[in-house]
């Protein structure tokens, strides 16, 4: 028990290890996280990833490489997937952020998992689970891009991309899985993409920015 308490204490200490930043080095930032507006005063160096984990207690989003190479920190920013470790929170002021905690739909009988989450369970698309929140958020964003007709490198020129294994592998290449659950991940994403009710659309469901060919 003593050991457990010591660990909890050191975690709290790590969250705020430094003196408060000087006024010119911090700003008030408002983020709409999973539908809830959160206003914080943050050191400008704080990434969206660290804001979620260290300031908002949302530990679903994982820190892997912290350099944009592994994809485990993937979240949806205004409906588009992004590496939260490379985004400064101050530069995202006003943004709508969806993390893995915000994907399930609340209901009277409890939450209903997002079709992509359910497909990961159905297909056993994970082993250790560390990369899974990033895989799932990435898949949600990717299915939206696919539904909007955005091409990938493997899309035949001039054609509309389909929900093929080849397309999924190419489009999910920014999410690494060191357990090697890729085969089941591809099957899960394919299954979720075929699900009725447009897995790509909900619950972040604002595909307006993903209209075919729209400029931002």
């Amino acid at each position: 028990m003593a050991g457990k308490g010591a660990r909890a204490g050191s975690t709290r200490q790590r969250a705020h290890p430094e003196a408060p930043p000087r006024a010119e080095h911090r700003s008030a930032v408002t983020l709409r996280v999973n539908g809830e507006e959160r206003t914080l005063t943050l050191d400008h160096r704080t990434t969206v990833l660290d804001t979620l984990r260290e300031h908002l207690g949302l530990f679903g989003t994982k820190k892997g490489c912290d350099h944009g190479q592994c994809g485990s920190c993937t979240v949806l920013i205004d409906g588009r997937r992004a590496n939260s470790c490379l985004l400064l929170a101050v530069a995202q002021d006003g943004a709508r952020i969806t993390t893995v905690e915000g994907l399930a739909a609340p209901g009277p009988g409890g939450e209903t998992l997002h079709p992509v989450q359910q497909a990961f369970l159905d297909h056993d698309a994970l082993q250790c689970g560390y990369c899974t929140p990033g895989q799932i958020c990435s898949a949600v964003g990717m299915l939206g891009e696919l539904a909007a007709g955005h091409p990938s490198l493997v899309t035949a020129p001039g054609s509309r991309p389909g929900l093929t294994a080849e397309e999924i592998r190419e489009r999910m290449s920014g999410n690494l899985c060191r357990c090697g659950a890729y085969a089941h991940i591809v099957a899960a994403v394919q299954d979720a993409g075929r699900a009725p009710g447009d897995a790509a659309g909900r619950p972040d469901g604002d595909p307006r920015h993903l209209q075919d060919g729209a400029t931002p």
Binding site: G68, G71, T74, R80, R81, A82, N83, L86, L87, S138, G141, M142, E145, P151, S152, L153, R171, M172, S173, G174, N175
Partner: peptide
């Protein structure tokens, strides 16, 4: 589309 990843290209 040959560069980076879907997440990085979005940003």
């Amino acid at each position: 589309l040959a560069g980076a990843s879907g997440q990085l290209r979005n940003v």
